[in-house]
Design a protein around this nucleic acid. Structure first.
Length: 491
RNA sequence: CGGGGUGUGGCGCAGUUGGCUAGCGCACUUGCUUUGGGAGCAAGGGGUCGUGUGUUCGAGUCACACCACCCCGACCA
């Protein structure tokens, strides 16, 4: 009663906003377009970081940290890159404030103007490649496989919690290679890592694909992505991996001597995922009762709620709860025993459902007498009473099952909302009625792509990598097409 | 930047044609009773009504200006 969520069916976008706020993941800050990520939301981000960081390290990547500030001149060195980011850069022009002589607080000191203005990084390719120039002389210095966890600023016109904010957190990998083949291999390797992470940890099924010319990263030769489908039928890009060719090496004069003594430009990749993943996570699984968090990313796996009528029972049950908590922790699970006396059990049940804790245990007087425990799973809302004996292995298995179940559910949803369209009217009809992924033939031209976007507000999300090649005709122009592309309205 | 909307205790809102003491729900504090699906009763604390100027005997209410935020578009992960 205290916290009513707007229902998904009623207003999806409001449901999402309510959920983020009421589950205490994040809130709006005093700064327009920027959010405060609260402990529970940040805990999910930390889980994401830990898992991805492990996958990066296993494949030989190391973490570094580059500055937040980028000299303005760096950005302009790669022509397409400037074009892509110029419109959304925050710029530092001064380095000092002073008291207003008129007595009205602080003003920017006009004496303290920077000789060269600094851009707050919208991405770090330029400063990193400017630095890599000094680190690379020979093929022996390659490859460089670095990543950084950082914050980024892109001055967005319209923002939404986690999905699009002016400042956001991400990881950006920047690698340098001796050959084109090796750089492409790296690009694909990372795409695989992202796919695995999305599906195995986030339980979000994704489509691997290649971005079209007009959708690719400014400065890349090829941009690969993973695309997921949200419950409202809109697509979201969950990660990108770019093959940068020699574009940045040329812009920053990064050359190396190869085995044959020949001078060449270095080959590059960059790749990233952002706090937007949290938005995708929410929109893939959650329901009208609140969040559903996959066990592998849940800050709390199991919550234990005690139920009692008097002090004797409270103490007895607390002892039992602590025992169970300890057994579960020995299995490596994160367990919260909510023994607050300030809230009633019913309140706690609702609260942890809202927060998406995968498993809830309730122990009351009856359970105490019978050596049982009531176990409730968040994904299906099923409740069972089971013996305390062996509960820890049961829960371990249950968490695995929940992880699989929500993935399967999301996969089934995506499959049920992926449609083939063989003409333009059919496509528009699907878009307007239910949304979802539309698989259709496209003649490959930017003009047709633009027309689709302008007339339907949908975009070509990607050219799927796993794709039966099928001859067909472009749904707009009727020109021949060799394969279908994935079209959807997106976030 | 265009269109729409909202600013009133921490949150969500009501407040009539200007009228005397600014109210309701939630949250908060204290006490008692409660505790297996968001408890009940009682008592209490908390407000420059977004800002400024004006009209008026009198402004939360009317006028003008400004500011902030939210939603919908164009841009984007």
């Amino acid at each position: 009663m205290a916290k009513e969520l707007t229902s998904k069916e009623d207003n999806y976008s409001q449901w999402y906003n309510d959920l983020v706020i009421k589950a205490d993941l994040a809130e709006y800050s005093a700064v327009r377009g920027c959010m405060v990520i609260k402990p529970y939301g940040y805990a999910i981000w930390e889980k994401i970081q830990a898992a991805l960081d492990g996958l990066f390290k296993k494949t030989g990547h190391l973490n570094v940290y580059f500055p937040l500030f980028i000299p303005k001149s760096f950005l302009s060195k790669e022509a397409e890159h400037v074009e892509g980011f110029a419109k959304e850069c925050a710029v530092v022009t001064h380095y000092r404030l002073k008291n207003d002589p008129g007595g009205k607080g602080l003003i920017v000191d006009p004496e303290a103007k920077l000789e060269e203005e600094l851009v707050i990084r919208p991405t770090s390719e330029t400063i990193i490649w400017n630095t890599y120039r000094n680190w690379i002389q020979s093929y022996r210095d390659l490859p460089i496989l670095y990543n950084q966890w950082a914050n980024i600023v892109r001055w967005e016109m319209r923002t939404r919690l986690f999905l699009r904010t002016t400042e956001f957190l991400w990881q950006e990998g920047h690698t340098a290679h001796a050959t084109r083949e090796e750089a492409i291999e790296e690009t694909m390797k990372i795409l695989e890592i992202y796919t695995r992470f999305a599906e195995e940890y986030m339980a979000v099924p994704v489509i691997k694909g290649l971005k079209t010319e007009s959708e690719k990263f400014a400065g890349a030769v090829d941009t690969y992505c993973i695309e997921a489908l949200m419950q409202d039928g809109k697509a979201i890009q969950a990660g990108t991996s770019h093959f940068l060719g020699q574009n940045f090496a040329k812009a920053f004069e990064v050359t190396f001597t190869d085995k044959n003594g020949k001078l060449d430009y270095v080959w590059a990749t960059s790749w990233g995922v952002t706090t937007r993943l949290i938005g995708a996570l929410i929109m893939t699984h959650s329901d009208n009762n609140g969040l559903i968090i996959p066990p592998k990313l849940a800050p709390i796996h199991v919550v234990i709620v005690p139920i009692y009528k008097n002090e004797t029972q409270r103490l007895q049950i607390a002892v039992k709860a602590e025992q169970i908590k300890k057994m579960l922790e020995e299995k490596g699970l994160s367990v919260k025993f909510d023994n607050r006396e300030t809230h009633k059990p019913g309140w706690k049940f609702a609260e942890y459902e809202l927060k998406g804790v995968p498993v809830r245990l309730a122990i009351g007087p009856k359970d105490y007498d019978d050596n049982t425990v009531e176990i409730a799973r968040r994904d299906t809302l099923e409740k069972k009473t089971l013996p305390q004996e062996g509960i820890e292995s049961y829960i371990e298995d249950l968490l695995t099952e929940i992880q699989q179940n929500i993935f399967q559910k999301a996969l089934a949803f995506r499959d049920a909302n992926t449609f083939k369209a063989d003409n333009y009217d059919e496509m528009k009809d699907i878009l307007n009625k239910k949304g979802g992924f539309i698989s259709a033939h496209w003649d490959g031209t930017p003009e047709t792509e633009k027309k689709i976007n302008e007339e339907t507000r949908a975009t070509i999300r990607c050219i799927p990598l796993v794709n039966e090649s099928s001859e067909g005709k472009c749904i707009i122009t009727g020109k021949p097409s060799k394969q279908r592309v994935l079209i959807a309205r997106g976030y």
